[in-house]
Design a protein around this nucleic acid. Structure first.
Lengths: 251, 251
DNA sequence: ACTTATTGTATCATTATGTTACAATAATAA
DNA sequence: TTATTATTGTAACATAATGATACAATAAGT
């Protein structure tokens, strides 16, 4: 609890720095990061969203890049700050750089709501190009943590997203398409599950991501033939049926 | 000829604008585009490279983004300026944003060689993040055209690249990996050929890109089964053998 | 007219995937 | 204790995709 308080104070301080520093010294100008952080729970794909204070706006976790920081590293920092996780699958998927995205109003509203009146040439009100990242995390391990300017940080099912700021809904859509395209080739699905899982859970994950039914026998045969799973033990679920095996992803 | 001269003067004017405008007004700060433009000729994959004046440096075609321009549109502009082509396959593949890329020396050398001594805080000497694009063009239709600060613009085989500026070789490598990964799924290979081509040419292209031999009968059967090719006419090549059919890509 | 190299396609072999079936079994109910 | 139930793991067969081989067709050179 004390830790959390310290953390929030630190976060708040970070934004105050960005806010009062009207020229944006110490940050790469005009470049931001947006992270689509996927989790899997209750047979649903979820994404982590922030609710911004006093504005009724929802947004993807994001941030800016320190002027001596790798862009990829900045994305890892955002991921760590919002979930507490490191060593997570994280990859770029698209740069959102249309001029039509430019809209200073949301951030202006947020700053005004904080009691700060920014000059019109404030760096945060200029045009930003955003690098989109997607991350796959273990839903049970992530600790959703709001940033300085948001009230809440929580999971939302892809089917029931709230109204999102700017083009964040399209960003999520494009991230989902990337995930679907890469699921088979790169074998990244396991990042959405815990260390141990049943074949049924894995199939449910695949069906959810790809949004289509898969044939149980063929799925199991295919996955096992890849030689990337290790059978661990039986799982006694409490269901009125044979207990499934637990598997672990190897190599 | 007159047209080419006009064009070069216009190009030169553009760079003079970027050079003398030490704050970079009118451009997005710290963001650039690098384009890996692939062509296919003589059973080889080639990329378009610029040789920079007086420096012995070779580099990928690139450019900056006007402050009211879409990033993707800026990439199309670069592609048009270097090849004269529009309506070309062009896609983002990666953002190169490591801090270790930062090296103002090459551009400084270029400006000095032009007889211009930039101030140390000149915008072109600051850190840049680069959005990588790859394009697939018809080798015979492209007209390689140098920009204001380069002597030549020419095709170089992937196996015999000259010494490249900064991390441009890694950028080409990553572009090639993206092309290989997308060749089958997105059916983009046809963009590297002319309007009409033989099955042998198409197979040679696939073998070159994927860097492996393919089985002729299986390749032909597979490609034809996709229903994306239309048989046009016979091609009388002058070879001492049966004349192959010409195909055209449809839909 | 004969030779040569290449093309288009047929045929069979092998591998991968779709489909059905069934024994094994953990929890529940009788 | 024993039957019931739902689910799992895998075998078995059917169908589809791909690999491998063969061969007739044929432009152009000899």
């Amino acid at each position: 609890m004390l830790f959390a308080k310290h953390f929030l104070q630190k976060m708040n301080k970070e934004f105050r720095k960005q806010e009062s520093n009207t020229r944006g010294d110490g940050y790469l100008p005009g470049l931001a990061i947006d992270a689509v952080i996927f989790g899997f729970h209750d047979h649903q794909l979820k994404v982590l969203l922030l609710a911004y204070k006093n504005t009724g706006l929802y947004a993807l976790p994001g941030g800016f890049i320190h002027d001596d920081e790798d862009v990829n590293q900045a994305a890892r920092r955002v991921l760590l700050d919002r979930t507490g996780l490191t060593n997570i699958f994280l990859d770029q998927f698209y740069v959102f750089g249309d001029n039509s995205r430019y809209d200073p109003e949301p951030l202006k509203a947020i700053m005004l709501a904080r009691g700060y009146e920014p000059p019109t040439d404030h760096w945060l009100l200029k045009r930003f190009v955003s690098v989109g990242y997607y991350a796959l995390v273990d839903f049970t391990k992530a600790i959703p943590t709001p940033d300085a300017i948001s009230d809440t940080c929580d999971w939302y099912g892809l089917e029931s997203l709230p109204h999102l700021m700017q083009d964040h809904r399209q960003i999520i859509q494009k991230a989902l398409e990337t995930l679907q395209a890469n699921l088979d080739q790169k074998l990244i699905g396991f990042n959405l599950l815990g260390d141990e899982f049943t074949m049924g859970e894995l199939q449910s994950l695949y069906e959810t991501v790809l949004n289509k039914k898969l044939i149980r026998a063929a799925f199991q045969r295919k996955i096992l033939s890849l030689g990337i799973l290790e059978r661990v033990a039986k799982k006694f679920t409490g269901g009125a049926h044979k207990a499934p095996y637990l598997y672990r992803f190897i190599s």
